[in-house]
């Protein structure tokens, strides 16, 4: 049996990073950066989600590659959905938009 036990200090370190990122996002809300506000907030959200998946959900430590593929595919399809939907919606012209 080799179930890697993740040390407590790793969990605490990840948690501290997550809280620091939360404070950073909260702080940017009081600064007007134009379109960069969304960009920064979403980047921070992706980093936070990655930290949770990799450490709290143990994907960093799994030896099973099939699980990793499923995790990646599960989230990647959402990018496809959003990208293709926006590719349609954002390129509609007035003539193609009339009901």
């Amino acid at each position: 049996m080799k179930h890697e036990i993740v040390p407590v200090k790793v969990y605490v370190g990840v948690f501290a990073t997550l809280m620091a990122l939360l404070l950073a996002t909260f702080a940017t809300d009081f600064v007007d950066l134009g379109a960069f506000n969304v960009l920064i907030n979403l980047t921070i959200a992706v980093v936070k989600a990655l930290l949770v998946v990799l450490f709290f959900m143990h994907i960093r430590y799994t030896t099973n590659r099939v699980v990793r593929v499923y995790v990646g595919a599960g989230f990647f399809w959402l990018l496809i959905l959003i990208a293709y939907t926006l590719g349609d919606v954002l390129t509609r012209t007035a003539s193609s938009y009339t009901p």
Binding site: T25, F30, N37, L42, I44, A45, V52
Partner: peptide, 25 residues
């Protein structure tokens, strides 16, 4: 635990998308 963390991840995205639209200053 996997389920709990996943629900956490959903919120991690809901928070900036719903609460942080445009700045509040």
């Amino acid at each position: 635990g996997l389920y709990w963390h996943f629900v956490d991840i959903v919120w991690i995205f809901l928070y900036p998308l719903l609460y942080l639209v445009g700045h509040h200053a």
